[in-house]
Design a protein around this nucleic acid. Sequence first.
DNA 1: CGTTTGACTACGC
DNA 2: CGCGTAGCCAAAC
Length: 150
Amino acid sequence: MVRSHPPDPEQFFALVWEIVEQIPPGSVSTYGQIASMIPPPPGVEPPQYARLGALWVGKAMNAVPNDSAIPWQRVINSQGKISLPAGSSAAEKQRGLLEMEGVGFDDQGRVSLSVVGWDGPPAEWLQSRGLSPPRPLKKDADDSAQLTLF
DNA sequence: CGTTTGACTACGC
DNA sequence: CGCGTAGCCAAAC
């Protein structure tokens, strides 16, 4: 880890949560993708933010109040896997919530980001908040289905 | 009070 | 495709 918190955690977290609320059921986003929509906070250089942004989004997810309606379960890591400790009750809960939304996992515990990956909020939504379009998701978590289509 | 350990990710073997 | 590493801060142990 580097800097374990953004300069203004509360403001950064609120922005992250607002974005996460836009993720529709059955879709997932990643820590890095969400970070890519948020510009570097004042005083944070872009290279530093590139390293830390995803970690800070993770902090924001960790800080989601228990009773909130924020769909925290729809945020996973860039590999398409759940980032909570494998086998933990929290990880099981996250997987269960996603499966209830129709998100499927392969035998390695990964989702197919090319199938359920989110493409971000509408451009005007982002624009009105000074945010950027998300960086495209990796496609490595592809299931073999796409390959066998050919 | 020294160590450990992060809701991460890109990159090199 | 899987595994280790850098990044170099801070709070929990």
